[in-house]
Computed example of a mutant assay.
Amino acid sequence: MPLIHIAMRAGKPETYRQAIFDTLYRAMRETFNVPEDDQFMTITEHEAANFRYSPTYLGVARSDDVVFIQISANNTRSLEQKKALFARIAQLLGESPGLRPEDVFVNIVEVAKENWSFGHGLAQYA
């Protein structure tokens, strides 16, 4: 059950933002063993003065279209699954909404299964 937070500069149309949601869900279904209908995502938009990134860190030429994607997920995926997810996200976001691979910044935060409550005050995975 990944929980995804996306941060980006303000100004993109709703269709662009929805394409990001759709693409991330597809990439997770294809590479990360995410069940059908497991979609918990937010997008936070920031004005330029409130959004900072390095345009060249580690030799990656980023633009103002850079998108930060943080995925909180159970600590059950292999290194191969993580690499496949990163590659698939970059590929699919290139197709829709048209993000350059250099502008796709992804971070996975792994948590123990008992650290989730999906409602009713219960720890469903514990």
Rank of each mutant, 00 (worst) to 15 (best):
R100Q: 14
T23V: 01
L92D: 10
D37G: 11
Q70S: 12
N74Q: 12
R29D: 07
M28E: 05
G98H: 07
M8N: 03
D22P: 04
D64Y: 04
L122D: 07
F40M: 08
R62F: 03
T23R: 11
D65C: 02
V109P: 07
P2A: 02
D38C: 10
N115I: 01
S117E: 11
P55K: 14
L3P: 03
A84M: 05
F105D: 09
Y57L: 15
A48S: 15
I43F: 04
D64I: 06
L3I: 09
R9E: 02
L92P: 05
Q39P: 10
Q91W: 06
I4K: 01
E30W: 02
H120F: 11
S96Q: 15
V104N: 07
G94R: 04
A87M: 10
G121R: 07
H46A: 08
M28A: 13
T31I: 09
L3F: 13
L92H: 01
V109T: 13
G121Q: 12
F21P: 08
V34E: 08
I108S: 07
A49Y: 09
H120M: 12
P97G: 13
D22H: 11
T56Y: 13
T42I: 13
Q91S: 15
H46M: 13
I20R: 02
P2L: 05
F68G: 04
H120Q: 09
V104S: 05
Q124W: 03
V67E: 02
G11D: 01
W116C: 04
R62I: 07
T76Y: 01
G119S: 06
V106F: 08
K82S: 01
I89K: 03
L3K: 08
T42N: 11
Q91F: 09
L93H: 08
M28L: 11
K113C: 05
E110F: 00
P2G: 05
K83F: 05
H46T: 10
S54L: 13
M28T: 06
F118Y: 14
Y57V: 14
Q18S: 12
A112I: 08
D22C: 07
V67R: 01
R88S: 06
T31L: 05
F118Q: 11
Y25V: 07
G11Q: 00
G121K: 08
T76S: 05
V34F: 10
R29F: 01
Y53F: 15
F51D: 12
L58D: 14
I43A: 03
V60E: 06
N74K: 11
I6K: 06
F86S: 06
Q39W: 14
Y57H: 12
A90L: 03
H46I: 09
M28P: 02
V34G: 05
E102R: 13
T44W: 11
R17M: 12
E30I: 10
Q91M: 13
T76K: 04
T23H: 04
E114M: 00
D38E: 15
V60K: 10
F118A: 09
I89Q: 04
A90W: 02
S117L: 10
A87L: 12
T31Y: 01
Y125T: 00
Y57G: 09
I43Y: 05
A19Q: 01
K82M: 00
V111E: 08
